[in-house]
């Protein structure tokens, strides 16, 4: 089953084409590393996939449904540049809020389960503004995984995470993939990306430079992809 179909997507900012005719499919269970230099269009594409922005031309289908179908949003989890949790709410209130917004059956139970999994249960009633950076990042991870999404969209997920949060995220991503989940992540950390990825999409100045399986050459030499398909 196709988890995602990107159909000739263009995105203009004024006259500038930030994305030019991007098209690829992702089967359920695949882990796609979305690569490219700064300004290649990775974040723009992820924002379109996450429903945060509309393509100027072309379209996106999630699990065979139109992207505008709100119910498909319940199947996706997003980790962007911000932690997307409220500083003035407690850790428990944040997770319960999102559990209610995702219409989970038992929001209290879901929140408590993820507070335990991220080792935040002891501070569940403390306000997020009092948390350390690492604790906030773990809460952000819990928020993204709370509703057991089938498709995870991660924008540079390992950047600015501490060791504990990186280990937690990697473990959750592996669990999700093992259960048939689909992951699309943009990153500059090629080593971590290649180890996890089954497929690779390389963007170059808004266009698609390469799309295909992650090969042994890419894993052995992380610069191989850029030398062969990227801009010199």
């Amino acid at each position: 089953m196709k988890a995602l179909a990107v159909e000739s997507v263009w995105k203009y900012y004024g006259d500038y084409p930030a994305l030019r005719n991007i098209a690829f499919d992702v089967e359920a269970g695949q882990c796609v590393a979305l690569l490219g230099r700064n300004g290649a269009g990775k974040t723009t594409l992820l924002r379109i996939l996450g429903g945060l922005s509309r393509p100027s031309k072309g379209g996106v289908r999630l699990f065979e449904r139109e992207h505008s179908d709100r119910s498909s949003r319940a199947l996706t989890g997003i980790i962007g540049h911000g932690i997307a949790v409220y500083d003035e709410l407690s850790a428990y209130e944040n997770l319960k809020l999102f559990a209610e917004l995702y219409a989970l059956e038992n929001p209290h139970k879901a929140a408590m389960e993820w507070l335990e999994r991220t080792a935040l249960d002891r501070v569940k009633d403390s306000l997020v503004r009092e948390f350390s950076r690492g604790m906030r990042q773990r809460l952000a991870v819990a928020r993204a995984f709370l509703h057991h999404p089938k498709l995870l969209l991660l924008d540079e997920p390992f950047t600015s995470l501490d060791d504990r949060a990186i280990a937690l995220l990697q473990s959750l991503l592996r669990d999700s993939l093992a259960e048939g989940g689909t992951v699309i992540m943009s990153t500059h950390q090629l080593r971590e990306a290649m180890e996890l990825a089954s497929h690779v999409v390389l963007l170059n100045r808004g266009g698609m430079a390469h799309s295909g399986e992650r090969t042994a050459e890419m894993l052995a030499d992380t610069g191989w992809l850029y030398r062969n398909y990227g801009d010199a």
Partner: peptide, 15 residues
């Protein structure tokens, strides 16, 4: 806008 919470709301299934 703090912590990009608006993105989390828009990308959620809330109409």
């Amino acid at each position: 806008l703090n912590n990009d919470c608006l993105d989390a709301l828009i990308s959620s299934p809330v109409p």
